[in-house]
Design a protein around this nucleic acid. Sequence first.
DNA 1: AATATTAATGATCACTTGATCAATAATGTC
DNA 2: GACATTATTGATCAAGTGATCATTAATATT
Lengths: 230, 230
Amino acid sequence: MAKAARPSTPRKPARATKPRTRLAPEQRSDQILRGAIQFFAERGFGGQTRDLAEQLGISQALLYRYFPTKEMLIERIYEELFVRRLKPEWDVILSTRTEPLLSRLTRFYLDYSTMLHDYEWGRIYLYSGLGGSKIAQRFADHVTQSIFTRVIAELRHEFRLPDLTKIPMTEPELELMWGLHGSIFYIGIRKSVYHLEPPHDVAGTVKRGVESFYANARAIMSGKVGRRSK
Amino acid sequence: MAKAARPSTPRKPARATKPRTRLAPEQRSDQILRGAIQFFAERGFGGQTRDLAEQLGISQALLYRYFPTKEMLIERIYEELFVRRLKPEWDVILSTRTEPLLSRLTRFYLDYSTMLHDYEWGRIYLYSGLGGSKIAQRFADHVTQSIFTRVIAELRHEFRLPDLTKIPMTEPELELMWGLHGSIFYIGIRKSVYHLEPPHDVAGTVKRGVESFYANARAIMSGKVGRRSK
DNA sequence: AATATTAATGATCACTTGATCAATAATGTC
DNA sequence: GACATTATTGATCAAGTGATCATTAATATT
């Protein structure tokens, strides 16, 4: 009944607490940031700092040595995912006309989709958007302005249609872009949000999507731009 | 400096508390359910019961008279959004062959998209999926099994290709369906998650999406089904 | 009008949760 | 090896959080 005290090793209580591992500040900071991305991607930003610390194998208090508040840690995550992962070369790929346009589009979307299909990126992008974060909306705006504009400009040139400076982007053109973007991003959503089986051949699916887009673009844009819509 | 007590009306402290409004149980229950959908759509399921009660203009305790736990209230919301809103007539629309297939597809997706584009429906669908709710995944499965299968069956018939019982749905066919679904749902996501301007002409956008889908379907399916893929 | 019924509430409990801080123990410096 | 530096931790605080319950007040019944 009564719990008997263990008689052996009377002093020094057998070191139940594991020895502290002491890291260089930058390493620890990186470890926390990477762990936090994984953690909040899974649990949402309502996830508790104690659970995050436990997952990292550190004390909860230590988080606050490297990030003053949970809020700031989340901001740092946004920076990491939505600013640092933008590649300037994307615009170069899309606009280098020595390569056929369909090939450029395919190359770009295959690369771009690796970001859109990243489990943690996708979930945090949705959580941040649902939570009303400015940076998520800013990212969406950026995508619209830079990528969409570039692709439509190239399509107009390809199809010998008036420049965007002459005729601004039309709604059907914009929606054509959103359609491609949405269908590709949704491949990631299926996996990262609803845990459905992704296509066996993701690259092939993206490729087909771009090809369909390209074919539709010719049909729709020739009918709508540079000609009076009926 | 010192707050003087108002001398008039010495008894009965001026009724600062508004008179209770007493509703029939079913009415109150409905009011809470509808308010909760709106509330959790905005704040996510981390939203607090006190804030929900305040938004409803009732006491927090009253929530627990009608719903035993917050969890049960959320389950009731799922029931309302993901079970009750499924329309059996969708399958009828898709499979009634007296109407041309493209027309059926357009009619169906125009109706279906009013659900997908509903602000609260979309946000709660995403929140529930991110949160790992079974019912969201079950809904996604249902969509796949019932709608996708029906549409592909009709397309196979239209293009005089082998029956689904002869050759099961191929990955390109499945992805074709997901592509349309994703691009249409994403119109809603843009609005309800990222607060971007929706297209001026949503119906027209959906219609164009279906038309493109139909054209691609012919091209892709004729190349892949009933013929050996290269 | 008196009484019974029950919808609605304020107060409260037990537990969670972001944040703080003095004490502790690795590591570097001489 | 002694000492200084600082990364790390356990303990703790204050505010918040879902849930409970005795009390209150609308409405129905007679």
